[in-house]
């Protein structure tokens, strides 16, 4: 069974015919070659495949591609500005040594986008909870937390 799905991906209107059995991960990786969307468990436990759908973070592995119809989807590939400048979140991940093997990084960055869009000043414990849908084996989460906190404070001029 196939179906035509139209949605906005990284700010661009797109239409493709997809197999209705596909997950959103499948669609983004295979049809749109957005390979920042990683597969670590395929059951919503690791967070590596996280993308934003209408501004909220979802595990794209357990989201049917057909549900993307009419939605606005953002992946890591969409964060860089047109002139090639990194987003402040990406830069902070580099500066704070928050990246090691890099496999969980795209998901973390996307969740951070959702968190920081709230424009709230969170405590470190609150940030831990907001980031807790991602597993990482390299960093012990320490520098990821530092990076997210840094951008949050910078944005709020704290």
């Amino acid at each position: 069974m196939f179906k035509e799905i139209t949605c906005s991906i990284n700010g661009k209107e797109c239409t493709k015919v997809i197999d209705v059995r596909a997950s959103l991960t499948d669609m983004l990786r295979n049809q749109y070659h957005l390979t920042s969307v990683k597969k670590g468990c395929e059951v919503g436990e690791c967070g590596a495949c996280t993308v934003l759908i209408d501004g909220e973070a979802y595990n794209s592995c357990i989201y049917l591609a057909v549900w993307a119809e009419g939605k606005s989807i953002w992946t890591l590939e969409g964060l860089m500005s047109p002139d090639g400048e990194l987003s402040d979140i990406q830069q902070a991940f580099i500066d704070e040594a928050a990246i090691q093997c890099g496999f969980c990084t795209p998901g973390f960055v996307m969740t951070t986008v959702e968190i920081l869009n709230q424009k709230k000043l969170y405590t470190r414990d609150e940030l831990r909870k907001l980031l807790s849908g991602h597993l990482c084996r390299c960093t012990g989460y320490q520098n990821v937390l530092n990076a997210v906190e840094k951008v949050m404070k910078d944005r709020l001029n704290q």
Binding site: G44, G47, A57, Y58, Y63, T111, L130, L131, G133, H134
Partner: peptide, 9 residues
């Protein structure tokens, strides 16, 4: 429940 992404879906 679970984590933030699971609570969104």
């Amino acid at each position: 429940v679970g984590g933030p992404q699971v609570r969104n879906i």
